[in-house]
Nucleic acid binder design. Structure first.
Lengths: 230, 230
DNA sequence: AAAGGGAATCATACGCGGATTGGTTAAAAT
DNA sequence: ATTTTAACCAATCCGCGTATGATTCCCTTT
């Protein structure tokens, strides 16, 4: 009404001023559109146009039901495990393990403390004592996690946990009753020992190689038809 | 009452029978303790003792407010971004990036489609056109994510997203007003071009090396005092 | 008649209170 | 004295109401 000609431009200017004034405080959320439009004295349509400009510019971020916030994006867009697991397959999970875990083992060889290594050795013994596949699986998981923990890098540990959770949901329901207990000559026993030994000897490349070999063995056991088909 | 002497043993046997019977169905959650105790005709105390045994054995797991489930552990223990970010530091995040992202780039060089590469090249141009640091950051993020996406592995992409979210929360609030816009000779421009070119030429090792080099540059810029201190 | 503004409506997300469930403790019963 | 039962606690889930951004429709104004 005052100046319909400039359209949303006045609203954009006012909104930028408001943003600058608000940015000095720690608050990142700005009022609802209905309030703000009245507070700034512009129509909601013009306000929305201005907001759209700022959003395309990356200065604010909006979401239905939550509000409008300043900043490039949601600080904590929860990336759900099920979201990842929902659109993937065991082969990709295995591939990711083959890429990530050897590097984690290398890092573990560099940063593991003596107590870390002692804990791994104890898990090694326990895997041999497992009387059921479920027990073995638990201790196997524990050992792999101990290795990730030994990297002394909480980010790597967290990524490992995410990967592990995805793996569990994806292959969920496999290997139910393949046998009473792991056979004594199961390849993983020797594999695990090689990995832990390499870590103990601070052999970075050896630890990564041993882990890679181990996971390739696991992959072969998981998808046994592969070589015959090719 | 019937046989107080054997204590919880009878309950344990009955519970194991119930578990075996239920395990054939796909259901993993068993009834509430109050119902189950009445259904099996044992006291809740004995039932809980039996449940404790099975839990220590790893066959079931329980959680307050949710229930009791068969299986080694919660299939979806939500690993929160903030949980990871809460107990780490920028150095560890950078280290994790240096470990993960080069391997992702290698995978991208193997699996990227032509449209993937075209999208990357477009982002390359856009980074040069960015007039503000925030715009540059957005496009930079987009480019790195495009590379992860080009790996054609949703697990790797998910892990990258998690890592990225952690990075954003950890370094949150840095580099506010270091300058109006990225300088034309910013190292990242050439770095990014090298990475994309290596991916386009299917040079696996080259892509990984270029990404590693780029991240080392970023690390150096992030922690500039390092070399002087040593 | 055209255009812009305002109100109603829709879809999604948050918040709160009740209900459910494992964990714990105390009273009661045998 | 031991076991069973009940009651209570803490944590979680679920449903409903509210708030918010997105969209549509109608009306006023020029």
């Amino acid at each position: 009404m005052d100046d319909p000609g400039n359209g949303g431009h006045a609203a954009l200017v006012q909104l930028q001023a408001y943003l600058a004034q608000m940015d000095h405080a720690g608050e990142t959320r700005l009022p609802a559109e209905r309030e703000l439009s009245e507070s700034l004295g512009v129509s909601r349509g013009d306000l929305r146009k201005a907001l759209a400009v700022l959003e395309k510019d990356g200065r604010i971020w909006r979401h239905v039901g939550r509000g409008t916030f300043v900043g490039s994006g949601p600080v904590e867009e929860t990336i759900g495990i099920s979201e990842i697991a929902g659109r993937t397959n065991p082969a990709d999970v295995m591939r990711a393990r083959l890429i990530i875990e050897p590097e984690i083992a290398r890092e573990a060889a560099l940063h593991a403390t003596l107590s870390d290594i002692a804990a791994m050795r104890q898990s090694l013994v326990q895997t041999r004592d497992a009387v059921t596949w479920r027990q073995y699986e638990n201790i196997d998981n524990l050992l792999h996690r101990q290795i990730a923990q030994a990297s002394r890098n909480n980010v790597l540990l967290g990524l490992f946990d995410v990967l592990n959770a995805v793996r569990r949901t994806v292959v969920w329901g496999r290997l139910r009753s393949e046998g009473a207990r792991p056979p004594a000559d199961h390849h993983s026993f020797a594999d695990h020992e090689r990995i832990v030994e390499a870590i103990a000897e601070r052999d970075l490349g050896g630890a990564a190689a041993a882990m890679r070999l181990h996971l390739q063995q696991v992959e072969r056991r998981l998808i046994p038809v592969r070589e015959a088909a090719e």
